[in-house]
Design a protein around this nucleic acid. Structure first.
Lengths: 141, 141
DNA sequence: GTAAGGTATGCAACAAGGTAACACATCGGA
DNA sequence: TCCGATGTGTTACCTTGTTGCATACCTTAC
């Protein structure tokens, strides 16, 4: 049978032999449920219904999830970070952010390849490809 | 003969039939002199020697330069904008930002091509390719 | 030269995203 | 049950960027 997103979140944390706290599994569940990367503010708003999580705690939990490899941190064009569950968001693909509503989408269909020629003594770690434009929701007509 | 960066900055503004104010040409000169995109804070610090320019004025001048096509606005991995003179920084190339010192560099040698396949009703406007790693200055040894 | 209008600048205050410090709560093992 | 480690909440703070408003400055017309 399929696990609920709640159970998925709890077991993902438990499998790391880490404490399964409310703040952690609720945050991770929120990322599992979301179909696109969410900002801190969006997650906070989404969790508010079931009992608010402190702003600072949420920042810490998100960093913790990133550090444990359960979530990814992506930058948006509005100077705010987005977070997505690793199960949803396999690294290496591009992201698209709408210039109208600022929502971010994963473009998993595009698997970009880059040819790199860095200056001497520059050490490469990571690359981001991010696109801007208007999403389907914000299209006129 | 070659014009000084100061004269280059002044004439670039004058050619647009716009007011050549101190704040404008000094800011543009700072971008001409810089060999890499600068943050607002870096520009402010650089200009401080010759008489400080107000923080807000600098933000406005930078936006004005971008609006007039004299400068480009690039986003950094530290959630702060970088600015570069258009003469220095032709669009379409990738940027590299050091994870140690946060300095940003232009990779004009790399001319990336992207194959795009957007979801239906998504409208593409712009793409950014940004790399992370350590720069030559921050390399161990 | 002077008045009038638009444009630039400086100042103060503010907003949003994010972080640091500290105290308290909670868990888990000896 | 005690104790240390870990997690949480509160407050305060920093940084980046913006808004509103008053003042100073140019430019043009008279």
């Amino acid at each position: 049978m399929t696990l609920s997103t709640r159970e998925r979140a709890k077991t993902a944390i438990a499998e790391l032999n880490e404490r399964v706290t409310d703040a952690r599994w609720r945050t991770l569940e929120a990322l599992f449920v979301a179909e696109r990367p969410l900002s801190h503010a969006e997650i906070e708003a989404g969790l508010a219904a079931g009992g608010a999580i402190d702003r600072v705690t949420l920042y810490r939990v998100l960093d913790w999830l990133v550090g444990r490899g359960l979530a990814h941190k992506i930058e948006g064009h509005d100077q705010a970070w987005r977070f997505s569950a690793v199960g949803n968001d396999t690294h290496g693909h591009a992201h698209f952010q709408c210039t109208q509503c600022n929502k971010m989408y994963c473009l998993t269909a595009i698997q970009p390849t880059l040819v790199l020629a860095l200056p001497p003594r520059f050490h490469f770690e990571e690359a981001d490809i991010s696109l801007r434009g208007t999403c389907a929701d914000c299209q006129p007509r």
